[in-house]
C-alpha cells in the first residue's frame, strides 16, 4: 500500500459516491455558472420534515469532485446571507436556475473569430496548439484549485465605479465626497474624514457668527432713537447660499 495507491482508492470511492448520488436524486442538476440566479430547496430537518427554499445569485463555483458545490448570496431585510450548497448532498431536494447570466443555447459556434494559429498558441501545456483548453476567465485566475469566485471581480468593478464617480465630481469642480462610513469605536477616523469634519465645522461656525452679528445689529436698530423700520430677517445665510448639489444640503442643521 503506497500513498499513491491509497489516493487512487480514495479517488475511486469518491467517484462511486458521486455516481450513487447522481442516481439517487430525483431532479436533473442544471449546470450552474457564476452570476446565475439559482433557487435551491433543501431539507432542514429529516425528523420534522421541514424545508427551506433559498434563492440567490451564484458567486462562486467549486468543482472538486465529491466536494463540489456553489455559493449563493442574497439579501433579506437588508441582511446579506451567503450559503454554500453542496452538489452531491442528499439533503438538497431541488435546484433550479431562474435566470442565467448568459443564454444557454445548444448550437453556438464555439470556433473563434479567426482561424489563425497564433491565437491558439499557449505556454506550459503539452499540446501547444489547441482551441479548447485555454482559461476562459480573463480577469483572475482561481485562488484555490477548482474554485472560481466572482467576488474579486465584483470588488474590482465597485472600486472602478467609485473611482469614476470621484473623477466626475472633480470634473464638476465639487469637493471630493467622502463617505465617513459606519461609526467605529476602536478604529481612528482617517485624515480625509477629519478634514471633512473640520470643513463642516468652519462652515457652521461662519454661519453662526453671521447670525449673531445680524441679531446684534437688529437689537441695535431696535433701540436706536427715532428709527421705526426694522428688517427682521437677515437676507442671506451661508446655508441658503449653498447650491443644491452641495454635500451639506442633505443634512442641514436645524
Amino acid at each position: 500500500m503506497t500513498p499513491q495507491r491509497c489516493r487512487d482508492i480514495m479517488h475511486q470511492l469518491h467517484l462511486q459516491e458521486i455516481e450513487k448520488m447522481r442516481r439517487q436524486r430525483s431532479f436533473p442538476m442544471p449546470e450552474i455558472r457564476p452570476g446565475d440566479l439559482v433557487e435551491v430547496k433543501y431539507e432542514l430537518s429529516r425528523s420534522q420534515q421541514t424545508f427551506a427554499v433559498f434563492q440567490g445569485f451564484c458567486v462562486e463555483v467549486r468543482n472538486k469532485f465529491l466536494n463540489s458545490g456553489f455559493v449563493l448570496k442574497n439579501t433579506y431585510d437588508g441582511v446579506g446571507v451567503e450559503q454554500l450548497v453542496p452538489r452531491y448532498s442528499p439533503r438538497v431536494l431541488g435546484v433550479r436556475v431562474i435566470q442565467a447570466l448568459k443564454p444557454r443555447s445548444a448550437n453556438v459556434d464555439k470556433r473563434p473569430w479567426t482561424r489563425n494559429y497564433r491565437y491558439a498558441w499557449h505556454y506550459f501545456v503539452r499540446g501547444k496548439y489547441s482551441w479548447g483548453k485555454r482559461l476562459r476567465w480573463r480577469f483572475h485566475t482561481p485562488q484555490r484549485p477548482g474554485i472560481m469566485s466572482l467576488e474579486p471581480k465584483i470588488r474590482r468593478e465597485l472600486a472602478a465605479v467609485r473611482r469614476r464617480y470621484q473623477m466626475q465630481r472633480k470634473e464638476a469642480r465639487l469637493p471630493p465626497y467622502i463617505f465617513p462610513g459606519p461609526y467605529h469605536v476602536t478604529r481612528r477616523q482617517t485624515r480625509e474624514i477629519s478634514a471633512e469634519r473640520y470643513r463642516r465645522m468652519l462652515i457652521y461656525a461662519w454661519d453662526e457668527r453671521q447670525q449673531r452679528e445680524a441679531k446684534k445689529k437688529r437689537l441695535a436698530d431696535k433701540h436706536r432713537w427715532g428709527r421705526f423700520r426694522i428688517d427682521k430677517e437677515p437676507k442671506t445665510t451661508a446655508l441658503s447660499e449653498l447650491p443644491s448639489y452641495h454635500p451639506l444640503m442633505d443634512n442641514l442643521p436645524k
Binding site: N67, G69, T75, Y76, D77, G78, V79, G80, V81, E82, Q83, L84, V85, P86, S89, P90, R91
Partner: peptide, 29 residues
C-alpha cells in the same frame, strides 16, 4: 454537517428572558 455552510453579513443577537424571546418581532433571516 452535510458540508454546507451559512454566513450572514452582520453579527446580531436576540434578547431572551427565561428562555423565551422578549421581543415580538425579529428582523431579518
Amino acid at each position: 454537517k452535510d458540508g454546507s455552510y451559512i454566513k450572514f453579513s452582520e453579527n446580531s443577537f436576540v434578547t431572551i428572558a427565561k428562555n423565551k424571546a422578549k421581543g415580538t418581532k425579529i428582523k431579518g433571516p
